[in-house]
């Protein structure tokens, strides 16, 4: 099973990972705010993730670590 680990405080909420996910599993958290004051990215359904790492490839800030 794939697992995404987000380094939340590095996230700038640009949303490039949201668009990159082929299964549309990532969103910018509507209720959380990180240290920088952005809404960080989070995964909505960890079970459905296949670990393609497209989100991590697109992330300019190396926020996402992908395990499979």
């Amino acid at each position: 099973m794939a697992k995404l680990v987000f380094k939340t405080d590095f996230c700038k909420g640009c949303g490039l990972c949201v668009d990159a996910c082929p299964k549309k599993l990532i969103r910018l958290s509507p209720d959380k705010i990180n240290m920088k004051g952005h809404h960080p990215a989070e995964i909505t359904d960890q079970e459905a993730c296949v670990g393609c790492a497209f989100c991590a490839q697109m992330c300019p800030d190396c926020v996402i670590k992908v395990e499979r």
Partner: peptide, 19 residues
């Protein structure tokens, strides 16, 4: 681990604008 930050990149937040 299939994807992680490369070792040659320092573990600090980048100052670049979002996106």
């Amino acid at each position: 681990v299939v994807f992680d930050k490369p070792h040659a990149l320092a573990d600090v937040p980048l100052h670049y604008c979002p996106g």
